[in-house]
Structure formats: C-alpha cells, structure tokens
C-alpha cells in the first residue's frame, strides 16, 4: 500500500490508449495534415489562389507546373484547395464552438432545473431540430446574408439542439449521483454543483460528439457554398471549388474530384479520430 509512485495522469493514460488504436492514429494524421495545410498555406501554395490566367484554363493535373491543374479561370487548383482548407477549418471549429457553448448551457439548465424551464428549452430545441438542417441554414443565411461569420453562426445554430439534448441526458443521470447530494450537504451553491461537479462528469461524450460535429460542419459549409449561400467567390472554399467543378464535370473532372476528395478525407479523419476518442475516454476500457 505504501507505494510512492505517482499515479499516471489521465492525459498519459489517454494518450496510451489512443496510440494503440491504428485507425484513430490515421484519423489524427489526416487532421494534422489539414491543419498544417491551413496554417502554412502561403508557404505550401504554389500560386496565388485568386490570380486568373485566361491562357491556361481547365488544365489537367501536372500540366504547366500546376500540380492539380487549373479551373475555368485558370487559377491553380492546388493553391485554391490549400487556402480553402483554412475556411473549412475555421467554419468547422467555429460552428462547433458556437453550437456547443450554447447547447451545453441550455442543456445544463434544462437538465438540472427541470420542470417548466426544461419543457420550454427542450421543445424549442425539438422545433429547431425538426427543421432539415440545410433548410435551417439556408433560412438563416438568407436573413443574415452571406459571409464567413454568418456561415459559422448559421451552421453553429444548427448544431445547438444536438448538444443540448445530449448534455441534458447526461445531466439527468449525473445529478442523481450520490456525490452530488454530498456536495449539496457540504453547503455548495447551485452554480458550483453545476459547473464544478456536473459539467466535468458530462464532458466525455460531448468531446466525442464535438469532434464528429466538426466533420459535419465542414460538410455543411461545403453544402452552403455549393448552393451559393456560403463563402462567396473569389475566396476559395472546398465547397465553392466543388460547385464550380460541377459545371465542368465532363471536360475537367479533376476539379470536382480533388476538392471532393479533400472534404472526404478531412471528414473521414475526424470521424475515425472521434471513434478513437470515444474508446480512449471510456473509463471501462481504462484498466
């Protein structure tokens, strides 16, 4: 019993579990590569993303020094995709941040206090969730207007009901735990019970859910841009590159293929990573 060895920190145990999972490592690698692309975009891009060259439109991959070819305006596709990763990441993370903060707060309040407050909040969430997501985003974008911030807000609001429902369910079970009653018996105020005891005990599934939702948000951005409601030309985003590629599917399929592939890989990476997170964070699999 008198072992003086320090107990391994949770972070270390978590990393160990994570590294054992090959698929999750692959996912993490994908995410890492995209983050590198986004951060070092000016260094990695071979051309200016928005500079047109009417003499070199719709070039195939590898032609004339264009790694992935050019689009209908003669812009370098590789460079556009590299810069587009910035938009995708910002929208993905930003939208999830907006959605989770609002969703978690609403879910905590609804779950902890219950009663009519719970009914009002959750019915509102149900109504929000009942809208097809893309329809909701389109409505919001029409009201808010286009632009990066508005895309983040629109996609973020679409994420709120999911987070709220999830955390409410967690709160309902955690608040019945004995240690919550004990904390109450110590004389703690409600804010302390909610934020210091209940919230940390609800976070595990939320982290996993958030990771997966980043992937969802990236797709949503692409979808909005594809519909012409998101990021406006000439700014490159994976969505609007795909949209432009659509018109040249027959003559220059590489535009749609490459932009689509990046969307696919980033989403796949995030999902695999999310799966790995779930396993690594599960206390039952922790020996």
């Amino acid at each position: 019993m008198e072992t003086t060895e320090k107990t391994p920190s949770l972070v270390k145990m978590f990393l160990k579990k994570m590294l054992q999972n090959k698929l999750a490592c692959f996912g993490l690698l994908m995410i890492f590569l995209i983050v590198v692309l986004a951060i070092f975009a000016p260094l990695i891009a071979t051309h200016q993303p928005n500079v047109m060259d009417t003499g070199a439109t719709l070039l195939g991959p590898g032609q004339d020094g264009h790694l992935l070819g050019t689009d209908n305006y003669g812009r370098d596709l590789f460079s556009r995709i590299v810069y587009g990763s910035r938009i995708s990441l910002i929208v993905g993370l930003g939208a999830v941040a907006v959605g989770s903060v609002i969703g978690i707060l609403l879910g905590l309040v609804a779950g902890y206090f219950g009663g009519w407050l719970d009914s009002i909040i959750m019915r509102f969430m149900d109504a929000l969730a009942a809208f097809p997501f893309i329809l909701l985003a389109i409505t919001l974008m029409t009201v808010l207007g286009t632009g990066l911030i508005n895309v983040i807000i629109a996609v973020g609001i679409g994420n709120v009901p999911g987070f709220a429902r999830m955390i409410r369910g967690q709160v309902l079970s955690v608040k019945e735990e004995l240690f919550i009653e004990v904390t109450n018996s110590l004389g703690a105020k409600q804010a302390r019970i909610i934020f210091i005891h209940i919230l940390p005990n609800c976070l595990t599934p939320i982290i996993v859910y958030a990771t997966m939702n980043v992937a969802g948000a990236i797709i949503s951005e692409a979808a909005l841009s594809f519909l012409g409601l998101g990021i406006q030309a000439p700014t490159a985003s994976w969505g609007n590159i795909l949209k432009e590629g659509k018109d040249y599917l027959i003559v220059a399929p590489h535009i749609a293929i490459f932009s689509g592939m990046f969307i696919l890989l980033s989403v796949l990476g995030l999902n695999l990573f999310g799966d790995g997170l779930r396993d690594a964070l599960d206390p039952k699999t922790r020996a």
């Binding site: 735990e177 004995l178 240690f179 009653e181 004990v182 018996s185 110590l186 005891h197 005990n201 206390p283």
Partner: peptide, 13 residues
C-alpha cells in the same frame, strides 16, 4: 455533516 453508505459513489470520480 453527513457520511453516506456508498463510499465510492460519495466521491466525484
């Protein structure tokens, strides 16, 4: 102050 029956459940994990 109170002490409860279940020693594990009384502590925030």
């Amino acid at each position: 102050q109170m002490i409860f029956q279940d020693p594990y459940a009384s502590l925030d994990p």
